[in-house]
Design a protein around this nucleic acid. Structure first.
Lengths: 250, 250
DNA sequence: CGCTACATTGAGTTACCTCAAAAATTGTGG
DNA sequence: CCACAATTTTTGAGGTAACTCAATGTAGCG
């Protein structure tokens, strides 16, 4: 069942016109390249789409390309033999996937939603990095940012209550989804789609699905959020939600 | 009470003879430099020592240098207004401290034990990085490693029981302390000093001090470890300890 | 419209936390 | 070198947040 993937790969020649219109052009790693060089990126880039749940990389069987997320959300999962799973990171549009010059992580990378990637064959990309130190510099800064985010989340996992965890999660998703849209989450209200199911939220927060559900209920009863269907959340009282999460600030 | 620090700073001119005899020379970031360049590192490096509990960097008030740990252990702490604290990383000899070219992390860095750092004034080090792309490359790989370690620890925080957490902690400390000694932790027995108090172990594992203490007791009752005083641990049955932690492998 | 997968709710259990006290370790002054 | 604080750690008893198991409800899809 690779039909869609293969189809997309075939379309990759179209990518030559994509960069100019690319939604993440300004924020992605590519923005570290001078415009002239961006033309070279064109030539080695190809787009691929993934359906929710499709595995992008799994431990040592990693793909032969690096990628920038154009749209959609990727979850990075650490799992153990006994079946326990922990989502260790969510990646959003403009984020970079892969570890140039290094051994691949022992992580599953999986499409959490419908996903579009802009891919670069590993050898070509590594050549480009060698020629353009600015690329490596930008990737380093990005990696530091990811490290900082990971450590912030360690606080959530280690020290926050279930209530606070769910609030932190909602804020995280909201902020990351909106930092693409230009306008920051203005006003006290804000509507967005969750990229994860309840089970996955539990796996990200170190909670069971039932506890996640109960905490959503609490937030709804207090008028802090509303839900439409399973995936749509409307934040009604941003201030109170932030006060619940609190730590997100520190 | 900065007497020791000031004294050390005065001694920094001695650092010119230190590199050859430096314990971490082979494993630290410096090893990315060709020998010729290492001579330049000499000139900009100076040693400093810190006593346990001494704060190295706190949020925006960060020092004007980057550093390599020569001996001792540093803890990175994320704390919240209400007093809750989470240790988000431990750093051991040969690890690098600081974020070149970027805003400093909003973290406390604190000497967990007696500590010796090899410091580099920020501007000099950044100049060196610009001239030696190998340095930035090596730092990138190091940062990816730290990110991977952080994510491994996220699994511990989110998915493991108190028992497993303490076992994971002991293994982590053991492995990191011994990877400097040349020989890997050979044989089933292994003795080492804990770099953290019980309270700090709790802050690293997301547990209370009492729970940490009770889990130590369990491990002792089962003959997996012994303790001498507060800080010395002897692992008697490595295999069983590893089976408790398990995830450390994945 | 009914089926399937996902989400919610409820009831009871447990692992870890909290509070309180005892014991051990470490440091200090006589 | 020993007695005595001061500090840290251990142990105990009881409480609670989150888990487990089981049943019910609800989207979303053919």
């Amino acid at each position: 069942m690779r039909s869609i993937e293969e189809l997309t790969r075939t379309h990759s020649v179209n990518s030559r016109i994509a960069c100019d219109r690319c939604d993440v052009r300004e924020r992605a790693l590519c923005s570290a390249l001078p415009n002239v060089e961006a033309q070279r990126v064109h030539r080695i880039a190809f787009r691929r789409v993934f359906q929710p749940g499709r595995v992008i990389a799994c431990g040592d069987r990693s793909p032969d390309w690096y990628a920038v997320i154009v749209s959609g959300v990727v979850k990075l999962v650490k799992s153990q033999a006994d079946g326990r799973q922990q989502i260790v990171a969510l990646q959003f549009p403009a984020d970079f996937i892969g570890r140039p010059f290094g051994k691949p992580d022992a992580l599953f990378a999986e499409a959490a939603t419908d996903l579009e990637l802009c891919c670069f064959a590993k050898p070509s990309f590594e050549t480009l990095m060698r020629e353009q130190p600015g690329l490596e510099h930008a990737l380093l800064q990005r990696t530091f940012d990811e490290l900082e985010a990971a450590r912030r989340w360690m606080f959530v996992l280690g020290r926050q209550s279930a209530q606070e965890k769910v609030a932190s999660f909602l804020l995280l998703v909201m902020q990351r989804l909106h930092q693409g849209c230009g306008q920051p989450p203005a006003g006290p209200e804000c509507k967005f789609e969750l990229p994860l199911s309840r089970t996955e939220i539990g796996e990200y927060l170190g909670l069971t699905i039932e506890t996640v559900s109960r905490q959503f209920r609490q937030l709804k009863l207090q008028g802090i959020v509303e839900t439409q269907g399973k995936r749509t959340v409307i934040v009604k009282d941003m201030g109170r939600l932030e006060r619940f999460a609190e730590s997100a600030t520190g």
